[in-house]
Design a protein around this nucleic acid. Structure first.
Length: 401
DNA sequence: ATAAATGATTGAAG
DNA sequence: CTTCAATCATTTAT
């Protein structure tokens, strides 16, 4: 296989000399001495060629004839000069035609892959066994939460990294081997064919280009693997923890206390986040989920509504000794709904299809109590106990995939 | 085991 | 940017 590919490349490099291009050298009349010598040599070559053709046609000891030609050429005193001249001609004819893509602008695609691999720690600083893992562990020093969860990720990443480096090394070695082979072959052939060192260089660069294409494929697949790994391990859905009971309590109290307009402002979200030990994004998520799910089945949610309404009312009447959380009192600054938000009325199930929520300006302030967007009901029901566990806040960033 | 609950993500729409 | 709606992936309850 190697031989075939190499021969293909060699044919690309071009060496189809058959006497045609030599015409351009003949410039009689200027420097007779040298030119005459060269003319003699050319004459000899033509003779040899004719001979060889004749011989070939006659199918008689072709190899022997070729060897004889070689010997004749190599032993001629003007061989080096002729060699260089032929090389020059070749340079100007065959190679110049396909010289267009000589310059090689750095492939943006390849650069992108390289950058990503370096950024992911796959291609960047060479590591031994666990050094890279330690480095990436220290990189995740923002919080202690990642140490355990990222160990798997790092292990897999190290695996990818090792495969990548192994493959890369293999390719490099194969490339070098092949290049050496080709160079040797060309050198060998340069005894009988006009091959300039420059041309060999070009051959080498062609080979490198071919191999770099293969490398790029490797990088591409490695990038894909890393992306899959990332999406698998960095997706927060995969390591979801429920909020603590207290946090759910707080959130639910706020929600049902502002049932008519359950859109906490930014400050309210921050406050709730602080109280619940979660991030603002999580508060937003919670309210988003809560709103949609409350709306989806109002019938079931009523129990909760009643529960928290009762709880809030009790807290308000007693002065609030309930776990330090006093909805109306502490959050009053942005709760301009003076109790009308869940007016304790209609103990029955007044599921009055909330209809559209037309209130504007809900992005920053839940100020306007736009009618009854979210129906409310009061009843009593049982409550669940409270266990609690939650780790510290995850980062607020949304990895785009 | 299976269903329900739940936090997070995605895409559309404003 | 926010919110809604659907959906995913996990946790919890049955």
């Amino acid at each position: 296989m190697d031989e075939q590919r190499m021969m293909g490349m060699l044919s690309q490099a071009g060496y189809g000399m058959q006497g045609g291009p030599v015409d351009g050298v003949g410039d009689p009349g200027v420097q007779e001495g040298r030119k005459q010598d060269i003319g003699d040599i050319l004459q000899q070559i033509m003779t040899i060629t004719d001979q060889s053709l004749d011989e070939a046609q006659a199918r008689a000891s072709y190899e022997a004839q070729m060897n004889m030609q070689k010997h004749t050429l190599n032993s001629h005193r003007m061989k080096p000069a002729l060699f260089s001249v032929l090389c020059e001609i070749k340079e100007k004819t065959v190679l110049s035609i396909r010289n267009t893509n000589e310059d090689e602008p750095p492939d943006p695609q390849l650069m992108r892959l390289d950058n990503m691999l370096i950024a992911e720690g796959v291609a960047g600083p060479e590591k031994g066994g666990g050094a890279g893992a330690a480095a990436s562990a220290s990189a995740a020093a923002s919080g202690g939460d990642n140490a355990i969860e990222h160990s798997d990720y790092r292990a897999k990443l190290a695996q990818i990294r090792q495969i990548y480096h192994t493959e890369l090394e293999k390719y490099e070695q194969a490339c070098n081997e092949f290049t050496t082979h080709v160079v040797n072959l060309l050198r060998e052939q340069s005894r009988t064919r006009p091959i300039a060192p420059k041309e060999i260089e070009r051959m080498v660069s062609i080979i490198r280009k071919k191999f770099s294409a293969i490398e790029m494929q490797l990088k591409q697949s490695t990038c894909e693997a890393v992306m899959i790994l990332r999406s698998r391990f960095l997706d927060a859905r995969r390591k979801r923890r429920n909020f603590s009971k207290q946090a759910s309590e707080i959130l639910n109290e706020y929600f049902y206390a502002h049932l008519s307009n359950p859109y906490p402002s930014e400050e309210a979200k921050e406050e709730l986040a602080r109280k619940c030990g979660i991030t603002v994004s999580q508060v937003s998520n919670w309210f988003g989920n809560k709103r949609i799910r409350y709306k989806k089945n109002i019938g079931k949610a009523q129990e909760e509504a009643n529960l928290y309404a009762a709880k809030t009312a009790a807290a308000a009447s007693q002065g609030g000794v309930h776990e330090g959380y006093m909805p109306q009192g502490q959050l009053g600054s942005y709760m301009n709904l003076n109790g009308d938000n869940y007016q304790a009325d209609s103990v029955g199930a007044n599921v009055q299809s909330q209809g559209s929520r037309d209130g504007g300006s809900r992005t920053t302030s839940p100020g306007g109590e736009d009618s009854n967007s979210f129906p409310n009901i009061h009843d009593l029901n049982s409550n669940s106990g409270d266990g609690s566990y939650h780790d510290e806040e995850p980062s607020n960033k949304r990895p785009k995939v």
